[in-house]
Design a protein around this nucleic acid. Structure first.
Length: 562
RNA sequence: GCGCCGUUAGCUCAAUUGGAUAGAGCGUUGGUCUACGGAACCAAAGGCUAGGGAUUCGAGUUCCUUACGGCGCACCA
C-alpha cells in the first residue's frame, strides 16, 4: 500500500484533488518531525488563510488510525508519523514471501522496450570507455524486465565501414591466420593501428578497394571479414558473461544496408529529401540543426542513415513503446537530428525514441588514444579488481573454500558498481586507485553487509530459531531499516522513469548503512526475548533479500560468505 | 561564433523532481574492540551550493546573465 495516497484519501482540502495532495507529500528533513509532510503554503491562496492555520485545522480534523499514528502542525507543515508496527506488518511478510520478486511489479505488462546498448565495434577490443554503455544498458534491461516490460536488448554492432577494408589490407600486408587466431582481438587491433600509422595514399586506395570487395560479396574478403567478426564476438561474449549481460539481437549496421533504399524512397515520398553539395540530405535548418545527410555525394550511406533504417525496422519488428539508445552525450546532436527526421516523416512514435546520454570517460593525463597506446582495457580492469579481491580474501578469510568464485563476484561487482553509482551524466576520470578502492560506498560494502546478514541467518537456521514477523514495536534503528526496505519498489520505478540505475545503487548503499547500524545496536540472536529475536531475524532476512535484489538488478552477484 | 551538458565540504559525489537546519563516502583527528563477521560502528572538523540578477510564501533545483570546464557543429562512427 502506498502511504501517500492513503494519507491523501484521508485529507480534505477544498479545491485540491486527492492526487495533487499525494503528489505534494514530502519527507521531512529530520525523522523526529515525522515520516511524511504536507507543506500547506500552496493552499493559502485558495483558502485565504495562513498556512499555519490550514495545517492546524487539517491536523484537528484528521483521525489517526492503525496506519498513521500521529499528526502535528508545525510552521505551516502538516507532519505525519506512520505506525511502526503497521509498517512492519505491511513490509516484512511481503518481502519474505516475494523473495527475489520483491521490488518488481507488472506496471509494464504488455509494453515493449528496446534497449540499444554496448554496441561494440568489430575488430576493436573493449576499453574502459565502453563500460558505461554496457553496464548502464544491462541494468536498464533488467530494471524494465523487473517492472514487467517485454525488453529487447540490442547490440547494434559496428560492423560496417571502410575501416574493415583497411583491416584486410593490413592483414594481407603484415598478418596471417595463425597470428590473429592466436593473438585474437588484440592482434587484429594491432594490425589496424599499424595501418593507420603507416598508411600511404596507395594503401588507402587499396583499403577502399577491399571494402568494395566485401560489399560486392567477394569470397575471400568476406571470409576474412567474418573471421574478424567471429573473433571479436567470441572475445566480447566472454566479457559479457562476466558482466552478466545477454542480448536478444546482434543486428548491427551491416544488417540494415539492404533496407536503406526503401528508407530513401520513403523520405522522397514525404518530400523531405533535397540535394545539397551533391549529397542527399534532410534540411533541418528550420530547427536550428545542420542537415541530416542520408546519402553521400558518392551515393554511399552513412552511420546516420543506418540508424534511421534501424529505428524504422525496430518499430516494425518489435512495435516498441519505447526505444532507448544508451550512447554517450557526445552524440547528442546526432540523436536530436535522427529523432527529428523520424518526426518529420510523420511517425507518431518519434516521441518514444529516447537518447539515454551518459558522461565521458577520460584518463588522469587526458583523453584516451588508441594510436598513442593510451588505453585502459576493460579486461585488465576486471582482472585487477578480481585479483585484488582474491588477495584480500586470502588475508581475511583464508579458509573459504570457493575463493575464486567469491573474488569474481566481488571484483566484477566493484567494476560494475563504480560505473553505476553516480548520475550517468557525470564525466568520469578513470584511475586504478579509485577502481581498486573497496572502501566506503561500494558494492563490496553492500556485499559484506549481505554476508553479515547471511551469517546471522545461518546461525539462526542451525539453532532452529523462528524467523517471522511478531508483534513487537520496532525501535529507531529497526524502523529506519524498515523504511529503507519499504522504499525499494519506488527506487526501481524511479530508476526506470529516469533511466537512472544509480537510484538502485544508492538504495543499496543506504539500506546497507541502515542495516549495519541496526546490526551494531541490536542483538539479533541474543535478543531479550524469543519474540524479538524472531522479529529481528525476519528483518535481517528482509534486508538481505532487498539488497540481493538491488545488486542483481545492477548485474552484481552476492556471495554467501566473503 | 553557435548549440547541448556540467560546476555542491580538501577530493569523489547525494539531495524523494520547488519544501523545513544541504547529506554520504574518501582523506584528517579522536573514539568503539572479549566480535550474531572490524571489509564494521560512533564522534569532531570541514558549505555564501562558481559569481550576479529574476520568479516564488520557499530555489542547490525554474528563468536570464557572467565565468570556468567538457562535448558537438555536412558527407567518420
Amino acid at each position: 500500500m502506498d502511504h501517500k495516497t492513503y494519507i491523501a484519501e484521508k485529507l480534505n482540502v477544498a479545491g485540491t484533488a486527492k492526487a495533487e495532495i499525494a503528489e505534494s507529500l514530502a519527507v521531512p528533513p529530520d525523522t523526529s518531525l515525522g515520516d511524511y509532510a504536507l507543506p500547506c503554503f500552496r493552499f493559502a491562496k485558495i483558502l485565504h488563510k495562513s498556512p499555519a492555520m490550514i495545517a492546524e485545522e487539517l491536523a484537528g480534523s484528521f483521525q489517526t488510525d492503525d496506519v498513521i499514528s500521529s499528526i502535528a502542525a508545525v510552521n505551516g507543515y502538516l507532519n505525519f508519523k506512520i505506525n511502526k508496527k503497521s509498517l512492519a506488518r505491511e513490509v516484512i511478510p511481503a518481502v519474505l514471501e516475494q523473495k527475489c520478486a520483491y521490488g518488481s511489479s507488472d506496471m509494464g505488462a504488455g509494453k515493449t522496450v528496446c534497449v540499444d546498448y554496448s554496441s561494440v565495434n568489430i575488430a576493436k577490443p573493449f576499453h574502459i570507455g565502453h563500460l558505461s554503455t554496457t553496464v548502464l544498458g544491462g541494468a536498464l534491461v533488467r530494471i524494465f524486465k523487473a517492472l514487467g516490460y517485454n525488453v529487447v536488448g540490442i547490440n547494434h554492432l559496428g560492423d560496417y565501414g571502410t575501416q574493415f577494408g583497411k583491416l584486410i589490407s593490413a592483414y594481407k600486408r603484415w598478418g596471417n591466420r595463425e597470428g590473429v587466431e592466436r593473438g585474437g582481438i588484440h592482434a587484429i587491433n594491432d594490425l589496424y593501428v599499424r595501418f593507420n600509422s603507416e598508411a600511404t595514399e596507395e594503401m588507402e586506395a587499396e583499403a577502399r578497394e577491399y571494402f568494395r570487395l566485401i560489399e560486392s560479396g567477394d569470397e575471400e574478403a568476406n571470409e576474412l571479414f567474418n573471421l574478424f567478426k567471429s573473433l571479436t564476438l567470441s572475445y566480447v561474449e566472454k566479457i559479457y558473461e562476466r558482466l552478466h549481460i545477454k542480448f536478444d539481437s546482434y543486428c548491427g549496421e551491416s544488417f540494415y544496408i539492404d533496407k536503406i533504399p526503401a528508407v530513401v524512397e520513403k523520405l522522397k515520398e514525404k518530400g523531405l529529401l533535397t540535394e545539397s553539395q551533391g549529397a542527399q540530405v534532410v534540411d533541418l535548418e528550420p530547427f536550428g540543426m545542420p542537415p541530416f545527410i542520408v546519402l553521400r555525394s558518392d551515393g554511399a550511406s552513412l552511420y546516420a542513415t543506418r540508424d534511421l533504417a534501424a529505428a524504422l525496422y525496430r518499430k516494425e519488428t518489435y512495435d516498441f513503446d519505447k526505444c532507448l539508445y544508451v550512447v554517450a552525450y557526445q552524440q547528442n546532436l546526432h540523436f536530436q537530428q535522427l529523432f527529428k527526421v523520424v518526426e518529420l516523416m510523420g511517425e507518431p512514435w518519434a516521441k518514444d525514441l529516447v537518447h539515454v546520454a551518459y558522461g565521458m570517460v577520460s584518463l588522469e593525463d587526458g583523453a584516451m588514444s588508441t594510436r598513442k597506446g593510451k588505453v585502459v582495457w576493460l579486461e585488465d580492469v576486471i582482472s585487477r579488481c578480481v585479483e585484488k579481491a582474491k588477495q584480500i580474501l586470502e588475508e581475511k578469510n583464508p579458509d573459504l573454500e570457493n575463493k575464486d568464485e567469491v573474488a569474481e563476484k566481488v571484483g566484477v561487482g566493484a567494476v560494475v558498481f563504480g560505473a553505476l553509482y553516480n548520475n550517468k551524466i557525470k564525466d568520469i576520470v578513470f584511475s586504478y586507485d579509485k577502481a581498486l578502492n573497496f572502501d566506503g560506498e561500494t558494492s563490496v560494502y553492500v556485499q559484506y553487509t549481505c554476508a553479515r546478514a547471511a551469517s546471522v541467518l545461518e546461525r539462526a537456521a542451525a539453532a532452529g530459531a523462528r524467523v517471522e514477523l511478531t508483534d513487537v514495536e520496532p525501535n529507531a534503528q529497526e524502523f529506519e531499516l524498515l523504511k529503507a526496505i519499504a522504499s525499494f519498489p519506488d527506487a526501481v520505478k524511479s530508476a526506470a522513469e529516469n533511466y537512472e540505475p544509480s537510484t538502485v545503487a544508492r538504495f543499496a548503499v543506504d539500506t546497507a548503512q541502515k542495516f549495519n547500524k541496526f546490526y551494531i545496536d541490536c542483538k539479533i540472536m541474543q535478543a531479550e526475548s524469543e519474540e524479538l529475536r524472531a522479529f529481528r531475524l525476519a528483518l535481517t532476512r528482509a534486508s538481505l533479500i532487498s539488497l540481493t535484489n538491488a545488486l542483481a538488478l545492477l548485474g552484481i552477484g552476492v556471495p554467501e560468505k566473503m
